Simulated scan of single mutants.
Amino acid sequence: MTATHTLSPRLRQLLIGAAATLVLTIPGAFAQEVAAPSGTGAPQGGEIQQFCTNIADAARDQRYLLQKQQIEQLQAGVDERIALLEKKRAEYEDWRKRRDEFLKQAELNLVDIYKTMKPDAAASKLTLVRSEIAAAVIMKLPPRQSSLILSEMSDEKAAILTNIISSAADPNTSKEPS
């Protein structure tokens, strides 16, 4: 028996792998000796090595130049998209500002409409709208007028609106709907 049979299988695999790596890294380990054809046109091994060495810097520079061009193209695309997003953001901000102004004006006008109505008419109209809107209108009205309107409503609707108004005034109430 040889010494390799007494080694563990793992150690044997490591030795075989190291030997294979060593053989593969030795230049010309599997190369066949071929005589260069004699003649004046055959390049010498040194000439090939010299040529490769001479063009290595130029090839590297060309690769860097191509990579730089690709990065510049990508950067231009990113800049273009950023400009488009900024334009869209500005449009959205303008739209939002106009919307907020409209809602504020509409809210003031709506409150003014209910201020001029008789309490029984206002109560009947506010029972038909969403409870959140009715509560917001009642909160904006003077307390005396709000109480007259609530007294004209059904007990259930008045209780719902009162709950909404009281929860809006509660500092412990979350601003986010749950």
Rank of each mutant, 00 (worst) to 15 (best):
G46N: 03
N109L: 11
L108E: 08
D155V: 15
R96Y: 11
L22F: 09
A20G: 08
P142S: 12
E72T: 12
P171N: 07
P119K: 01
I82N: 06
H5F: 05
H5K: 13
Q70Y: 08
K97D: 15
I164S: 02
L84I: 05
L126R: 02
W95D: 10
I113C: 03
Q32R: 11
P27C: 04
A169S: 03
Q67G: 12
T40K: 11
L24M: 10
G46Q: 04
T40G: 02
K88W: 13
M139C: 07
H5E: 10
L103F: 07
P171I: 07
A106K: 06
I165L: 14
I26Q: 05
S174C: 14
T21V: 06
R130S: 15
V78M: 06
I113K: 05
I160P: 00
A106G: 03
E72H: 14
I165D: 01
E47V: 12
S38R: 07
Q50I: 07
A56F: 06
R10Y: 02
Q105D: 04
S178T: 06
R99H: 07
T6G: 04
I16C: 01
T173R: 09
E107V: 01
I55H: 08
T21I: 07
I26K: 07
A106D: 11
L126I: 13
L24K: 13
I160Y: 01
T53Q: 03
K140G: 02
I164M: 08
E101M: 11
P119H: 01
P43T: 06
R130K: 15
L14N: 01
R89M: 13
R98F: 01
P27I: 04
Q49T: 12
Q75D: 14
S154I: 09
D79I: 05
I16D: 00
I149N: 01
Q69A: 11
T6K: 02
I113E: 05
E132G: 13
E132V: 09
P119G: 10
D61K: 15
R10W: 05
Q105F: 02
A31H: 09
Q105T: 02
Q13M: 02
S146V: 10
L15R: 00
S8D: 08
Y114L: 15
D120F: 13
S146H: 03
T2G: 11
R89F: 10
L66W: 10
D61M: 15
E93K: 15
A134H: 00
E86M: 08
Y114M: 12
P142K: 15
